[in-house]
Amino acid sequence: MSMMRFDPGLLARDAEGLFWMARYLERVENLARLIDVTQSFESPGFETDAWFGLIRINADEKNFAARGFSPDAAHVKRFYLLDRGNPTSIPSSLEDARTNARTLRPLMSTEMWRQINVFHRFAGRITPEDMEGDALSRLCTRLKEGVQAHTGITQGTLYRDQGWYFYELGRFIERADQTTRMLDIKYTALLPRDGEEKRVAELTQWNAVLRAAAGYHAFKRYARAAFSAEDVVHFLLRDPSSPRSALLCVRRIESHLDDLRRLYGLSAGEAIERAEILRALLLEKPLGHILATGLHDYLDIVQIHLQQLAAAIGRAFFRDWRPQADEPAQLQEQTQVTA
């Protein structure tokens, strides 16, 4: 007989809180990675192009202008690293993660809560000096490590009941989305017009993308010596073992949805279907074809599918979980709906 009393169930609100806490933190890590790689794309005289590319891949153009910024390297850094009024900035994401964590305190370990607080304070004390030159890369490293410490503590201390699956679902949806954005940064990067110079510049940029995704060494072990753009895109979109590849994330999502059904009788037919469609989208077309017809547009479609998958999970568990619910509440796709 089990020593546990009974299954206390999981409040829909708490499931949603776990999902979003994970998303916000994953967003912080990936934004730090993107900022780091953007700095390495800077070429003298063209800094603005490199940094404004970051605004474009995050689809933040309107938000950026509305906050009173203009396309300028220093402004973009401030927008993402200092501006608490920008909901997509790192301090804002950490604020949102911590607000969710507060509502989840009864469910999480003291160690998780303490680390989130320390990290939140660190991000609140970023200064303009931290964004200059070499200091910026060190700052990005600290931010990545902050999220990695969180992830590790969570892996080691969060109780593995239903709540854990929602945390993981949020994390993998966000990670898949962010990986597609990381690939997209190449789309906005400038290249010399042609010839050998262009080939070398392109290789350097792909290397930077791989490093941003922490995949450079693994890629080198498996790829051909003279690799092509197609190989890099394959590694980040379709490699079944690369921890940040979109395919690995989608497979984890499918397996978590399946576990929720198998272990807890929680079915989310629509979400499972959407995950299957997304997996097919990632695998069906030859990459050569995708690269020829436009990687950027393809990545856009993948992002839209991820948003629809997140919405389906929301409909199944957080908002309209009641079969008789008459008024389907709209689940906003990119940011959390707060009650």
Partner: peptide, 9 residues
Amino acid sequence: YMRTISGLK
């Protein structure tokens, strides 16, 4: 009732 991920409890 409370709203849980598996419905009203």
